[in-house]
Design a protein around this nucleic acid. Structure first.
Lengths: 153, 153
DNA sequence: ATGGATCATTGAAAATGTCAACGATTGTTT
DNA sequence: AAACAATCGTTGACATTTTCAATGATCCAT
């Protein structure tokens, strides 16, 4: 306790522990903190991180199927059902029967969905920039690149 | 399902979407994948990611109080109670009344706890290395550093 | 045309997250 | 010393998220 503690941020005593270097823990903490910040930013448009991600992909023009959404977002297909249900009931997205395969459903944003998405995207972008304020642009780019590569294993 | 299973992962079509660059999403995916892999690795010693983190800090010699554990792990104090309960019932940690403040409880590992922790640590270390196989040692260090700095905000 | 695989969906069970209280204890104010 | 607010661990209630098995509809390969 004698030396290093700067004024404002009371560095927790446990930061000395070896576990403080675990990538897994760091990712978990950043995820937890980021979720809180993002969900708060999205509360204005009555979205959560998850539904925002789905809406965002529905706006992408890529015509994702629910299965693709599940795989891409690392969620169980049944969770996608619930998320799309919620968005559909609010008229932000609609399900369309797949043309090649009638089993699958394509999720596409409505005009209202696009409007909400534009608002949400701005809010999320701002909150993300705030959360990563400690890093400059190059570092953010490096972080993004490392995360993306780590995910291809 | 999940992200973790590595083999023939055909690059999802949705990777083109702008959302694929969202730091928030990348962190969420890495966290999801990492949790699955870690929990699978810890199943041998009948621990989960959470209880492992607590046990690990209990082994650190820093004599953490439950409140410190909560703050450091970004968990609600009531969750720490449950986690410590589980570990205590298995004889891996014990609660000791704080010396300076009799309200607080210090969580300390038993000899059995240290043994389990040694096993668990090796397993987690191996699975983490496997998960980050796409990065070399320098890159892992960079990632660690960026994550740590991003968390001080 | 039959059988096996895949898709969205449902429902149940477990795990996690959030929040408000409570007794015991501490520190502070009078 | 007495009264007061604040903190710690704990309990309990509740919502959300995760995980998994099953089902009907549809596709694909034999």
């Amino acid at each position: 306790m004698t030396v290093g503690d700067a004024v404002g941020t009371t560095q927790p005593r446990l930061a000395q522990a070896a576990i403080a270097d675990d990538i897994g823990l760091l990712v978990a903490k950043l995820h937890a903190a980021g979720s809180v910040v993002n969900n708060r930013a999205l509360a204005d448009v009555d979205l959560r991180e998850r539904s925002y991600s789905v809406l965002r992909l529905a706006c992408s023009g890529l015509e994702p199927t629910q299965r693709e959404l599940a795989e891409f977002l690392s969620l169980d297909p049944s969770q996608i059902v619930a998320l799309v249900d919620g968005l559909e009931q609010r008229g932000l997205v609609e399900r369309e029967q797949g043309r090649a395969d009638r089993r699958q459903k394509i999720v596409r944003a409505t005009a209202a969905g696009e409007r909400i998405h534009a608002q949400a995207e701005a809010a999320v972008r701002a909150s993300e920039r705030e959360q990563l304020a400690a890093l400059d642009d190059d570092e953010v780019a490096t972080l993004r690149s490392l995360l993306r590569r780590a995910l291809r294993s």
